[in-house]
Amino acid sequence: MENIPADNSGQIDRRMALKWIGAAAAAAAVFPHASAQDKLPRPAATPTGQRIGTDPVLNKNYVPGDLWPLTLTPKQRKAAASLTDLIMPPDNPGDKLPSQLGVQEFIDEWISSPYDETSKDRPVITEGLDWLDAEAQRRFQKDFADLAEAQKCAIADDICGKTPVKKEFKSAQNFFGRFRYLAASGYYTTPQGWKDVGYVGNVPTVNFDGPTPEALKHLGLA
């Protein structure tokens, strides 16, 4: 059995260290199509090995950065914020932008955390955000966040997968898919995201009323 060290705060256990080394090695292969000059220096991977632990305080609200240091550079964070807002623009008056709800910080928390399921996204997201800015510079001579909406869409349309993606954008498409998965997970788990998607639970009520007449009618059950 693999066992989690009983007290691992502040130090990386050997198994995790090996995983991180592996992840760093894999990172080089994430964007094989990006030319050398497109590659900006990556942030140093400095995970502390801090994990959630088997006995965290449960009834406390956590924010990204509480448990382990975050990864994204200010430039990457700006690109991430801009992309979350492009993927999930507000539909209702008064709704906040996903970036105002901190969705990019959740993505940063995710890629900075020392779990198998999350750490494999670290090179995908950091290199992808670097590629996004490099691509924006190449096409429009500005960083992605500073582009006009139509310019952002021009890049996103090429990599979002709705239409066939060209060979040179395959890595960017992979990045976009993972980024969208994380951005959506981050957004729809917020109270605004709940409302947006049609989730109206988590509210105490005296009775459970069951389906509404409209819902029953919709299913041919009324």
Binding site: L86, M88, P89, C153, C160, K162, S185, V197
Partner: peptide, 14 residues
């Protein structure tokens, strides 16, 4: 209650 993966499978953006 939405969780990880909610919305993750749909294509496109916007």
């Amino acid at each position: 209650m939405p969780g990880l993966g909610t919305g993750g499978a749909s294509p496109g953006y916007g």
